[in-house]
């Protein structure tokens, strides 16, 4: 039972770490978008306010992907252990019974 619990908790931690890989993409994407926006504003300075406004919204959308990964990781760390421990205990009890 303890071994199964240890393996389960380890795998949940591994899953949470894997979910956080999603946090890499938004940073790269936002960086590229801002670099392109800088070039666009350099070409047409009169469009600065509309470009900045659109860029902020675009960056917020890109950032959501990372937040999805973060939410999954937090759920795996704080919610899933309790849930899976219950399932494991039920399985062991039914096997003994």
């Amino acid at each position: 039972m303890e071994l199964a619990m240890g393996i389960m908790l380890g795998l949940l931690g591994l899953g949470a770490g894997c979910a956080m890989i999603a946090g890499i993409g938004p940073g790269i994407g936002e960086g590229n978008a801002v670099a392109a926006a800088c070039e666009a504003i350099g070409r047409q300075p009169e469009c600065k306010s509309s470009v900045t406004s659109t860029l902020i919204m675009g960056c917020a959308i890109a950032e959501t992907t990372g937040l999805y990964g973060l939410i999954v990781a937090i759920l795996l760390i704080f919610v899933a252990p309790g849930m899976f421990t219950g399932i494991l205990k039920d399985a062991v009890t039914s096997m003994k019974g």
């Binding site: 940073g27 801002v34 800088c38 504003i41």
Partner: peptide, 22 residues
């Protein structure tokens, strides 16, 4: 993002926003 755009240098802006996102 607003400060990075005001800076006007694409490479520096990209680096700043990447660091901020992380």
């Amino acid at each position: 993002v607003s400060l990075a755009v005001e800076g006007g240098k694409p490479d520096e802006a990209a680096r700043r926003v990447k660091a901020s996102a992380s």
